[in-house]
Design a protein around this nucleic acid. Structure first.
Length: 423
RNA sequence: GGAGAAAUGGCAGAGUGGUCGAAUGCACUGGUCUUGAAAACCAGCGAGGGUCACACCUCCGGGGGUUCGAAUCCCUCUUUCUCCGCCA
């Protein structure tokens, strides 16, 4: 959520930068400013009314104390009128504040200056590419055939137990999955991230805190009985660790990493290109998250990008990095880099990581602040990224490491799997 | 699930109808001292709104009520702790 004061002071700039998302925010921004002005006017009016009755109450107290009960009773009558005025103003003020908040919830984050304009993922800007695309042997196949051939992931079973998009990993498939999780967590903790295990269900306040609610309500599984949501990413519980928190400047930066399953309804997203492990309702992901001083968040973002690069380099997977264009940028993000691994047998790129700086957008909703050197409370910047999303890494490994004799295991993973070949 | 207790500033913890935005300690900031640091001492120090700045308003878990006046009394919800029951 953007801060009203920021909108008020940077109106033209905010509109101009939101235009990169291909939205004309002029009306929303103007409305927000007007609502805020009206809200403040009401507040002032209410304040002075209350000041008046506070003064009277004090006077009444003094009169009673000095035994002038009659005078006091006279003043009491005066307060009745004020009470009514107060009540009416309070109601008006609440309505106004709610309307403003509702509007602010609808305004996405302001893209960073360097975000390219564009409409769809086709307009994203490739900024980096690394790794050789392997020449596959004759008869090489996409991963959905490979998992069947080697019996390591079973969609039929998942169908039986739950439904489409909930696969069962078996044998070496399950072991490889676990190896990847351990390897990622080890890489992240070595890089200074503190490992956390967080709840897989979150309450409504947490959903609002990171921006999944009210915007992306339909994307999460909702347990209505208890009004809890299954997490679509560890970002939600992990970031909400810091909801309503005031940090010391010396506490920054904070880096966390955590593994969780992720649940996504993907309503309306089911169609082409979702074969095999490409898109699931439940998948595993290791996440990294940072809380940063505003001056350092973009350095931190670059650091996260370098970190993810180092993992992919070790896995020896061909990948590229995209800077997302305005049209493809997530609601809460100011700048996002997507990592895509090349799925050789499918001849297409698969997104495996998304690294974003949210600046103060989440922190404002979360009330995540730090006491700066002037003693003032200032909003932190939050960032997060995947390191990495499991199924597509798995798909990438299966397809790129396939040989006629089976699937080779990337060298760095062998200590974790205990085997170097799936055959 | 049953019985009881509790929820106060960044943290800990006093405060039971007006003079309480709230004692005290820790943390934090500035200063004295020191070559420097630590310790000690002195001073400052909750948050949000509002204002050019003051004034002023709000906030003692959430919501509602009583009262001229509520951290304090009442109702309700939530959470935590203790004891009992159940249980991975």
């Amino acid at each position: 959520m953007l801060q009203v004061a920021f909108i008020r002071e940077n109106k033209e700039d905010v509109i101009a930068r939101l235009a990169k998302r291909n939205i004309d925010a002029t009306e929303m921004i103007n409305n927000a400013i007007v609502l805020d002005e009206e809200r403040r006017a009401l507040q002032t009016k209410l304040d002075s009314t209350k000041a008046e009755s506070n003064g009277l109450s004090k006077e009444i107290g003094n009169l009673f104390k000095s035994g002038e009960a009659q005078k006091a009773n006279l003043l009491k009558e005066k307060t009745t009128q004020l009470k009514e005025t107060t009540k009416a103003l309070e109601q008006e003020l609440n309505d106004k504040a709610d309307a403003l908040k509702e509007l602010l919830y609808k305004i996405p984050n302001v893209p960073n200056e360097i975000v390219p304009s564009g409409n769809t993922d086709e307009d994203n800007e490739e900024i980096y590419r690394e790794g050789d695309i392997p020449t596959l042997h004759k008869g090489a196949t996409p991963h959905w055939d490979l998992i069947k051939k080697y019996d390591i992931v079973d969609f039929e079973l998942g169908n039986k137990i739950t439904g489409a998009g909930f696969p069962v990993y078996k044998g070496k498939g399950a072991r490889l999955q676990r190896a990847l999780i351990s390897y990622f967590l080890d890489k992240n903790t070595t890089a200074g991230y503190t490992e956390v295990q967080v709840p897989h269900l979150v309450n409504e306040a947490s959903g609002y805190g990171t921006g999944q609610l009210p915007d992306k309500e339909g994307q999460m599984y909702h347990v209505t009985e208890d009004n809890l949501y299954l997490i679509p990413t560890a970002e939600v519980p992990a970031t909400n660790i810091f909801r309503n928190t005031l940090l010391n400047e010396s506490d920054l930066p904070i880096g966390l990493t955590g593994y969780t399953p992720c649940f996504r309804r993907e309503a309306g997203n089911w169609g082409a290109h979702v074969r095999g492990l490409n898109r699931l309702h439940q998948f595993d992901k290791v996440e990294i998250l940072r809380v940063e001083h505003p001056d350092k968040s973009y350095d931190a973002l670059n650091g996260m990008v370098e970190h993810v690069k180092s993992i992919l380099k070790e896995l020896k997977l061909p990948y590229r990095i995209l800077k997302l264009c305005g049209g493809d940028l997530g609601f809460t993000s100011a700048l996002t880099y997507d990592f895509e691994v090349f799925s050789t047998a499918q001849d297409r790129w698969l997104e495996i990581s998304s690294v974003s700086n949210f600046e103060t957008f989440q922190a404002n909703r979360l009330k995540l602040r730090f006491k700066n050197s002037d003693g003032k409370n200032e909003l932190c910047h939050t960032l997060n990224g995947s390191s990495l999303a499991l199924p597509r890494v798995l798909a990438g490994i299966l397809e790129n490491y396939q040989t006629e004799n089976g699937i080779k295991i990337p060298e760095v993973l062998v200590p974790y799997t205990g085997f170097d070949m799936i055959s």
